[in-house]
Nucleic acid binder design. Structure first.
Lengths: 177, 177
DNA sequence: AAATATTATTTGAGGCTACTAACATAGGGG
DNA sequence: CCCCTATGTTAGTAGCCTCAAATAATATTT
């Protein structure tokens, strides 16, 4: 009861949509001198009224400083969130494009959807994974090259003995507490 | 004009929540003889009225056959969706637990969120990736073992010539040593 | 400055998913 | 059979995110 009139600086977790807006604003912040509602709308693929109302929400939450008809500014807090989401986006994008070799456009869209769902722990693991691949040429890069060949050879690596099986249903052993 | 009274068998894409319900029902279908609203509610972590109304929606969309107070049944269509989502879930879960070594509980939750966002194309690539790792011991498993060590050694693999640096902002230059 | 063009907000609505509270049905013991 | 408990449905409400239409403020041009 010390805190909040309604929802200012509320404790509730951000929605993924809010995170997307913060990421977009963070990006725009580095591209342009001033950010306008119109820019955000374009970036997010929504109409301006939607941005207006979201800015109101983000303002109440202490994530942006925004007053009607003015330029948009992130608070420290909002910037941290935006930057973090951006970081996730980049890790995922990198994984999709450089490891899985998905085309950039598709990868970008998918990274955008995934970036909200991963815990930092997982993100860190993924980062470590890629780091490993790229800093350990012997075990990494050459291995990645094998993988590329494997993709090309129609998934039939004669060089390897296949011990396939279809994997799925055998996690059940250790399931829920 | 030939089609639809409102939303029956509509062309609109399913929401991820709908997909989740279909996956849950698909699973329950394989575990129990009859599926009740209560079961779905428990599985999904929601209350029964929410399930009721979702079943109405899914019914209108031709994804389940359901009449008040009766047992729940997937249509062919609904089953296909459920199975596909399940498949995605498993691929992702496998990747998270077996490659990245995330704990099962966390991995399960994250897989559940990611399963809606990936295109089949990406899923296929990921599948291929894991398949490769696990069918090619020489380039795969032993490599995976290195990765595990790498994780344990606090990200400092002396075996590899560490041309480390903090990784993040300098991929731009490298690729070849 | 006045007229015009651009940008932004308000208002009112709708879709989706969730909830609580109140009511309804089904099925088994008395 | 009737009542009780399990289970399920309806009704009403709420939060989020979105939009179109109407309105308002700002910026630019003349």
């Amino acid at each position: 009861m010390v805190t909040n009139n309604k929802d200012s600086i509320a404790e509730k977790p951000l929605t993924s949509v809010m995170e997307d807006y913060l990421e977009a604003i963070f990006d725009l912040d580095q591209e342009k001198k001033f950010i306008r509602v119109k820019d955000i709308a374009k970036r997010m693929g929504v109409k301006m009224p939607t941005v207006s109302s979201m800015l109101k929400t983000l303002n109440n939450r202490g994530l942006v400083n925004y007053e009607k008809y003015a330029y948009v500014e992130l608070t420290k807090n909002g910037e941290d969130v935006g930057k973090e989401i951006r970081r996730r986006h980049e890790v995922l994008l990198k994984f999709l494009t450089e490891i899985l070799e998905i085309g950039f456009d598709i990868a970008d869209v998918e990274a955008c959807k995934m970036e909200h769902t991963l815990s930092s722990a997982t993100l860190d693991r993924l980062t470590g994974f890629m780091e490993f691949i790229q800093t350990c040429p012997r075990a990494g890069e050459s291995w990645l090259k094998y993988f590329k060949e494997y993709l090309v050879d129609g998934h039939r690596p004669e060089k390897c003995q296949a011990r396939s099986k279809t994997f799925s249903h055998e996690f059940e052993s250790q399931v829920q507490t």
